[in-house]
Design a protein around this nucleic acid. Structure first.
Length: 566
RNA sequence: CGGGGCGUGGCUCAGCCUGGUAGAGCGCCUGGUUCGGGACCAGGAGGCCGGUGGUUCGAAUCCACUCGCCCCGACCA
């Protein structure tokens, strides 16, 4: 296409509302414009890039036998009520009423619609397995949209759903998706990490997330490069650093001591001259309305996600001060497990086997020393702790890294949650009715673009992989008024097109500097600069990522580009 | 929902404290000169200063309310 005819509104300066690199560059490079909080218009360049991403996704989904569909975004309340998610989704779901006052909503994801199709049509085991997918707009009324296209209220998702007769079938479908996702992200040129993930409100047993390392991300992942361990922080396990001081020996009895004004772990540590690792941190939590006392080593953080899993609660929150006073008889800062019988007590595994520790006495301004878990109080031991910097991999002892990342894909073994609640049944080979098992799998289309930008950019703009860049090469005559340059550029442009190279001709009547700055900004991976050397039959090949320049004979330029984009 | 910040031509921002006829740079339009990393000269267009109400002779400026956007937290299949 010819730049002079295109709408590519680049900006010299980033609009002040943008903070993360991908947001700034998408705006500056004229890819997107914001309409409202978390709602964006995708202009020509963004749409072109997203189309390329979607085509890669389609090819790879089709390759595993997935069938593309297109489901409605506008849903009746009924199916969401059946699955129970009309309630669960709360304010995150956009809801509306039709003219007859019937409740409707905008789809946040499509388990319900897919399952309703399946239950209406699938009758026999002979029809399974099925892999169905779509690429469609999702709506989520995010409490806080942010970071440009990273967290928005309307976005594109490739979502697929599998239906299998049994867990073994689901394993196969899951593995196919895992591999297809790797191929998709590889082809999109991304660097990513696959991590074990928490299944969250989706329900289900196993799940993996595909993550791109970025400070703009909202997740933390735990990675051990040598051991290959990778998990979301919500789920990650590790070997903690050993206690800073060995526990006192002997069968000592708990002993109360006065700790006036010492409430935090640090204050008690300073007061007793004993490290935080010698203390028991006691957190009063409320899991689905019921109090739970969670115990951790003093230097450890509670993972609320793990606590919720352990208690089977949908959500866990810290207790309010009044609740603590009521249940424990003291305020936060003086709480402990000794003598607590009315509520469930769960302790982190790092406390198992410890002896003679310090904890609150459930009496304001008093603590206990010589408290031994399992003897002086009873607790269930579970993994409740959040992995901390310095922790090592559980099996190999390798130092683990914690990396800020953004999620670009997520695969789930759903199990029977939707097929059961919505009544999907088929007959098996014995004529008996059985409930198929499901999986669901998502890719955030825009996040692939954002991830690529976050990963590959410099002060001058984006450096997009050629597979997802809006154009693969830009042909730039340095002076459009020079007839020889213009004609040679035109010819080279046509030659590129003829060879199937997605070329852009910068035929604007602009000074070269403007053209260079613009093409750098919008991230076209290659540029053929047609200038003075045309007299010697040469054109300059400029590689955006790294900015290397080489001279190439004009006659070979198109073929060279073709070869470089693979 | 709690905390913070910001709303002034398309973009970045000044002006506000101390009320008195709305500014700069970039961008845009016209003409000319230029042409290898965001050119130069000359001329020009473009703003109910987010909105409403109040105070005042007079409000971008002071006060109240309100809307919007951004950031932190809570939340997040």
């Amino acid at each position: 296409m010819r730049w002079s005819k295109l709408f590519i509104p680049t900006l010299r300066e980033a609009p002040s509302e943008a903070e993360v690199p991908s947001h700034q560059l998408l705006l500056r490079a004229g890819y997107v414009r914001q309409l409202s909080a978390g709602i964006y218009s995708y202009l020509f360049l963004a749409q072109r890039s997203l189309n390329k991403i979607m085509n890669i996704v389609r090819r790879e989904m089709d390759a595993i036998g997935a069938q593309e569909m297109y489901l409605p975004a506008l849903n009746p309340a009924e199916i969401w009520q059946e699955s129970g998610r009309w309630q669960v989704m709360g304010d995150n779901m956009f809801r509306l009423k039709d003219r007859f006052q019937r409740d409707m909503c905008l789809g946040m994801t499509h388990e319900e619609v897919m399952t309703s199709i399946a239950r209406g049509e699938l009758r026999s085991y002979k029809q399974l397995p099925q892999i169905w997918y779509q690429i469609q707009t999702k709506f989520r009324d995010e409490p806080r949209p942010k970071s440009g296209l990273l967290r928005v209220r309307q976005f594109l998702m490739k979502d697929s759903y599998t239906f299998d007769m049994d867990a073994a079938g689901l394993d196969v479908a899951y593995q196919k998706h895992y591999e297809a996702y790797c191929r998709i992200f590889d082809r999109c040129g991304l660097k990513y990490t696959v991590v074990e993930a928490h299944s969250g409100a989706m329900g289900g047993s196993q799940s993996h997330e595909f993550m791109v390392a970025s400070d703009a991300g909202e997740d933390l992942i735990v990675v051990g490069e040598k051991s290959g361990y990778a998990a979301n922080l919500e789920k990650a396990v590790s070997r903690p650093v050993p206690p800073a001081l060995p526990d006192p020996e002997g069968d000592l009895a708990p002993e109360e001591f006065h700790t006036p004004g010492r409430k935090t772990i640090e204050e008690v540590a300073a007061f007793t001259s004993l490290p935080a690792t010698s203390q028991i941190k006691s957190l009063v939590m409320v899991a689905d309305g019921k109090p739970v006392l969670a115990l951790l080593r003093g230097d450890h953080q509670l993972s609320e996600t793990k606590l919720a899993s352990v208690t089977g609660a949908a959500e866990a929150r810290p207790a309010h001060p009044a609740e603590m006073r009521d249940w424990m008889g003291a305020d936060a800062g003086s709480l402990g497990p000794v003598g607590i019988t009315k509520m469930r007590v769960v302790a982190d595994l790092a406390l198992e086997g410890r002896r003679n520790m310090i904890c609150g006495a459930n009496k304001d301004d008093y603590h206990l020393r010589h408290v031994t878990p399992g003897e002086d109080f009873q607790a269930e031991f579970h993994d409740l702790r959040q992995v901390a910097p310095g922790d090592t991999e559980a099996n190999t002892g390798e130092a683990l890294k914690i990396v800020k990342s953004m999620e670009i894909g997520h695969i789930f073994k759903l199990g029977y949650k939707y097929s059961q609640s919505m009544g999907l049944r088929v007959t098996d080979e014995h004529g008996k009715e059985v409930t198929p098992i499901m999986g669901s799998y998502g890719i955030g289309i825009e996040r692939i673009l954002c991830g690529a930008i976050e990963l590959f950019h410099d002060a001058d703009g984006m450096m997009l992989p050629s597979s997802i860049a809006p154009f693969q090469v830009v042909i730039t005559p340095v002076n459009s008024k020079d007839a020889a340059l213009r004609e040679a550029s035109e010819a080279l442009y046509k030659e590129c097109l003829a060879m199937g190279v997605d070329a852009l001709l910068d035929d604007r009547d602009e000074r070269p500097g403007v053209k260079f700055k613009d093409s750098d900004l919008i991230g076209i991976p290659f540029r053929l600069t047609m200038g003075k050397k045309l007299g010697q039959g040469l054109v300059e090949l400029y590689v955006r990522n790294g900015k290397q320049v080489t001279d190439v004979p004009v006659a070979e330029a198109a073929a060279k580009i073709k070869q470089m984009i693979g």
